[in-house]
Amino acid sequence: MSGNGPDGGAGTRRYDVLVAGGGPAGCVAALVLVRAGARVVIVTPVVPPGRRVGESLAPTARPLLERLGVLDRVAADGHTPCHGNLSAWGEDALSATGFRSGPYGDGWHLDRARFDAALLEAARAGGARRYAGRVRGVQRWPDRWQVTTGDGGMFQAGYLVDATGRAARPARRAGAAVVRCDHLVAVAGLLGPPSTGAAEPERASLVESTPWGWWYTAPLPGGERIVMAMTDADLVTGLRLLDPDVWWARVRLTGHVRDRTARWTEPPRRLRVLAAGSACARPAAGPGWAAVGDAATATDPLAARGIVTALATGSAAARAILADRAGETGALDAYARRIAAVHAEYLNARVAQYRREQRWDTPFWRRRH
């Protein structure tokens, strides 16, 4: 990495903590840190409208959001309620898991752009700075990090938080290895608002398994609906899932997803391919740095825990950094061990969930059995 050495230059910006990435995990980490008095900058690119797809947020996020002081804002921000999850898994019939009987009530079908913006604004209101850019270079000096951005910005910080997602490039620059368990991808299409009908959509997420993978769909605020075909990256071409017409024809071959997209008469104009595989950073923290969210532990969407994990790891990493700053040796190592244990528990649950579907002896399912 080019730079001006350990002392930086006249244009170097100095902070206690630099957060690379402005999603939920990074913003929560920044929020906890600035409330404790740390000087924090969030380096994150401007995301064009439509780049973030909506998804469901489980009710277990409520106590996390409440502790962060942002629950009321999220609840009033136009997201629609999610009453539970439906699945056709291991059999054609639907099974339901309702939220209303649980301790936290309903979850939400999110407008992701609005949700992420609310967390970023909360961090900025607390005192975090935001720099619009992308981290390109990371170099470790004895007592701090020197970070450069794609547009030539230069920063120094005592701590580095990697919230860049599954790629986890800053964590890898810090010495972590990203261990991937599979190559699951989502071929996602956004439908709506519908061209026919005005009935209120069912307020639940739905998964439906197929011989080559599974489908996910959920209603979104504003009458839209997200639909994703989940399969392994090497199977996409043979299935022709990148062709919107073929993708749409496969939707029509389902049972329950077809029913929930009946109000739409045409496929989406474009499809997006999103990484959705399971992965873990090993370790997820070290001297002066920590990974959060998908950079620390990335989970299969089937687990429905991505955003909740982002909130929890962002908060936990921030507390570990604050403890390390206060002289508590081992705080960051303890965080890394906690992430490893959480990911191991998730992998066991993932195996059990996929083993519930035994109807097909195909490459996708053999890999998971």
Rank of each mutant, 00 (worst) to 15 (best):
A96M: 06
V32E: 15
G54T: 02
E66C: 14
V19L: 08
L64D: 05
P63F: 07
A75R: 01
A58V: 12
A29V: 04
L31Q: 14
G105K: 03
D77E: 09
V53G: 03
V41A: 03
P103C: 12
W89I: 14
L65E: 02
R35I: 05
R73D: 14
A38G: 09
A29F: 08
V34M: 10
P103R: 14
L65Q: 00
E55T: 07
R13G: 01
Y104I: 00
E91A: 13
R13T: 06
V47E: 12
P59W: 05
V47A: 11
A76C: 07
S95N: 05
E55Q: 13
V19M: 04
P63L: 01
T60W: 03
R39S: 15
A96T: 12
T60C: 07
V19A: 08
G11R: 10
H79D: 10
V47S: 06
A38S: 15
G21I: 00
G5H: 09
N4F: 15
R67E: 15
N85V: 05
G50L: 08
T44A: 13
G9Q: 10
W89A: 07
W89L: 14
A76F: 05
L33M: 04
A58W: 07
V53T: 10
R67C: 01
V32T: 14
G9A: 13
T80Y: 01
R39M: 07
R73M: 00
R100D: 13
L18N: 02
L68C: 12
P49E: 07
G78R: 09
L31I: 02
Y104M: 08
D77G: 08
G3T: 08
A75V: 11
L65I: 09
G105A: 11
R52K: 00
A61L: 07
G22M: 02
L33D: 09
V34I: 12
L33S: 14
V32M: 07
L33W: 06
P48W: 03
L94C: 12
A38Q: 15
